[in-house]
Amino acid sequence: MKNYKILLLFLLFLMVSCNRKENHPYTFYYWKTQLKLDAEEKKALDEATVPYLYTRFFDVDKEAGEFQPVAVITKNKNFITDKKIVPTVFITNKTLLGISGEEIKFLAESIHHLVEKKSEELHLKINNEIQIDCDWTAGTRDDYFKFLKELKKVSGKEITCTLRLHQVKDKKQTGIPPVEKVYLMCYSTSSPLEKSDKNSILDVSILKSYLSKIGDYPIKKIEVALPIYSWGIVTNHLEKHKLINALSQKDLNHPDFKKISENEVEVQKDGFYFGSYLSKGFTIKIEEISQDQLEDVIRFLEKKIPNFNIIYYQLDSKFVGDRKF
């Protein structure tokens, strides 16, 4: 009888363990050009369990041979948060093409100085980290990795970087960045501007195939970036596509739209919709990510990556209002 009770308790423990949902600390990316929080965004950020806000400071591009900072961040005077800011800088792959050793040093110094200048100017409490976001390729990997090392040298900060799905799958070609921590971008599984039945923001089957061996990735500290954003893909009579950001299913409920599928409508009347002029016959397809899809990805990654934080892209009242984090 005693052994029976022990066995029963053991089976009960197994059932509870298997059904227990792992809680991951989480926070957000902030990707607008002005730091400004409305009430819903502030509430979501205050409730986030990671003490950082990953904030895009500026982009870097190269035009006519010159490095250019693009859309440098500003701040509304009413922006207040207890979170430390992690400066995040997006660098176009074009910026790294044909770059010289002297230019790598200049780029690293320039980015460091602009991050410091904006942090001081905007009175931001920043973390000792700079995150670089770049869709580097096999052709730019060596120079990009040199840049990451140089930025660490000139800034004295921890340098981290984003990691896209193809950079995991094709790691022999794209290489392993010289950082101690990466942020795995679990979105953009295909192009939204190509005709496809798949969800271009996140197709879970594609993600799983690309990340089947993520557990073997040489950098062991991996945080996970998950999408909560949505958009509408407009297709005209010539099958050309364009994006309208932040549209959702509820935006399709309009008297001038005819529903042609669960997530797609046809415009019935010429006019301005969502800030764009759309002609009769244009279609709008909504792409958004369900809670079930996110949980499917999380469960998959829990088997591959130990103890990861989640950074949701992005903090916006249009995306955080109905979400459970």
Rank of each mutant, 00 (worst) to 15 (best):
L247E: 09
N3H: 13
N78K: 15
E66R: 15
A64C: 07
L252W: 13
F106K: 15
V204Y: 02
P178R: 06
S119L: 05
T140Q: 02
F67E: 02
E102Y: 06
T174L: 08
K84Y: 09
L8C: 12
E150A: 07
S110G: 10
K117P: 00
D296R: 07
K152Y: 01
K172Y: 02
S209K: 15
E63Q: 15
L202F: 03
K213Y: 04
A48H: 02
H237L: 10
T92L: 02
T49A: 01
T140D: 00
N76T: 06
T81K: 08
E239Q: 14
G321K: 13
A138K: 13
S290R: 07
Y52K: 05
Q173G: 00
K242S: 10
K32C: 01
I111K: 12
K285H: 08
K77M: 08
I286Q: 07
N78D: 14
K36S: 14
A108N: 05
Y29E: 02
K250E: 12
T160G: 05
L8D: 09
D316I: 03
L8Q: 14
P227N: 06
N128P: 12
Y26Q: 00
V204T: 15
A138I: 03
D316R: 00
A225L: 06
T95R: 00
L226V: 02
Y54I: 11
N76C: 07
F28A: 04
F325L: 02
L11W: 13
V86N: 04
T189W: 01
H113F: 07
V86D: 01
A48Y: 01
E194P: 00
